[in-house]
């Protein structure tokens, strides 16, 4: 058979090997761990101690340094889950299924964090814990979607079927992401528009948004660390009959 020239790079195929992924993530983990620790500690100190207080909201605005990274991350995590699910459906990659599965509980937790910090922030500024406006509601829907994915996965016995079914559900739920993103532009709501955009300079002064950026990157690193830990566990669990896992376990 003539060898077909593939348009996909070599590392894409390497990702399909659980063993290669396990070892690769094991090499990445310490770097991301150190990065997370450094960024989160530095970002927290900078944002809580050194950043100036808001001229209207005083110190209560500082919760933005947790709320915004959590909200951004909750959506990115859903995107990653859907993309990994699609890769799993199309190329039947086991590792992609594992990534998709591992994203759901992390994303649900982060979504709860975003909603909770939003509620705590809403009390002093809007005077209410919860307002039924578009952004809050669509964020709540995002949490429900995560919970649906988790429930569907746990209801199915076979790992393969469960992964495929949740991938379909995650892809269907993807319609919610643009709704969350643009809810503040489409509807007049209490919630302020996006803090960060790729194309424009933030409306906040530099000494306020710079620590926020550090926190956002720190949250992403934290997400990477917890995702890699979960995926590595999942690889070990599903590949427990493979000889390399046996050898690894014998060493311990």
């Amino acid at each position: 058979m003539a060898e077909k020239k593939s348009w996909l790079p070599r590392w894409f195929y390497q990702l399909a090997s659980p063993r290669w992924c396990y070892e690769f993530m094991g090499r990445l983990l310490p770097w991301f761990g150190v990065g997370t620790l450094f960024l989160l500690v530095a970002g927290t100190l900078w944002s809580l101690v050194y950043a100036p207080a808001d001229y209207q909201q005083g110190n209560s605005f500082r919760i933005i340094y947790i709320h915004v990274p959590a909200a951004i991350l909750a959506q990115s995590c859903y995107m990653l889950m859907a993309i990994a699910g699609a890769i799993g459906l199309i190329w039947k990659m086991k590792v992609a299924d594992m990534v998709a599965k591992s994203c759901a509980p992390i994303g649900a937790t982060i979504a709860i964090l975003a909603l909770a910090t939003g509620a705590i922030w809403g009390k002093p500024t809007w005077g209410a814990w919860w307002v039924w406006d578009a952004r809050l509601t669509s964020m709540l829907v995002l949490l429900f979607l995560y919970l649906g994915v988790i429930a569907l996965h746990s209801a199915m016995e076979s790992d393969t079927t469960a992964s495929q079914a949740t991938s379909v559900l995650a892809l269907v739920g993807l319609v919610n992401i643009p709704i969350i993103k643009y809810s503040v532009d489409w509807w007049n709501t209490l919630h302020q528009p996006a803090t960060f955009t790729l194309t424009e300079k933030p409306a906040m002064p530099t000494e306020m948004w710079l620590p926020l950026l550090v926190m956002v990157i720190g949250f992403y690193c934290f997400f990477a660390v917890s995702l890699m830990l979960r995926v590595r566990n999942e690889i070990l669990r599903r590949e427990r009959r493979a000889s390399w896992v046996r050898a690894l376990l014998d060493k311990v």
């Binding site: 979607l145 429930a151 209801a155």
Partner: peptide
């Protein structure tokens, strides 16, 4: 939209409640 939920859960014995969990968030818009 409900049919997506029904199709995903048709092979399960306890499909009934699960459908609501999967489909209700998508019904909100």
């Amino acid at each position: 939209v409900g049919a997506i939920g029904a199709a995903l859960t048709v092979g399960l014995r306890k499909g009934g409640v699960l459908i609501s969990l999967l489909v209700l968030p998508l019904y909100i818009p």
